[in-house]
């Protein structure tokens, strides 16, 4: 636990989460969600949970992003609301 780094990373994760929810373009939301998972993985590592961080990096940052991009490619890209 390193407190200053902790607060900075939590702030980044918060910014990414809010941006991913509020954005209209789905592809941009997927890209920002990729950044969210990268920063989340950094947060896990910083809390010395390396195995969790490895799982987060491998599952959410690569395969998750790829599968979500595939879903956006096969459906509509703009959300209607």
């Amino acid at each position: 636990m390193i407190l200053p780094l902790d607060f900075i990373l939590i702030l980044f994760v918060f910014i990414c989460a809010v941006a991913a929810i509020t954005i209209k373009d789905l592809l941009s939301a997927v890209v920002i969600l990729g950044a969210y998972s990268f920063l989340m993985c950094l947060l896990w590592t910083e809390m010395a949970a390396i195995d969790v961080a490895f799982t987060e990096a491998s599952v959410s940052a690569s395969i998750g992003t790829v599968l979500m991009i595939g879903c956006v490619a096969k459906t509509k890209r703009r959300s209607k609301d």
């Binding site: 490895f54 799982t55 491998s58 395969i63 790829v66």
Partner: peptide, 17 residues
């Protein structure tokens, strides 16, 4: 070291992707 079956399998699938 960190990692194991699940993470390694996902990276393996990422290589094929």
């Amino acid at each position: 070291s960190p990692g194991g079956g699940f993470q390694g399998g996902v990276i393996l699938a990422a290589g094929f992707v």
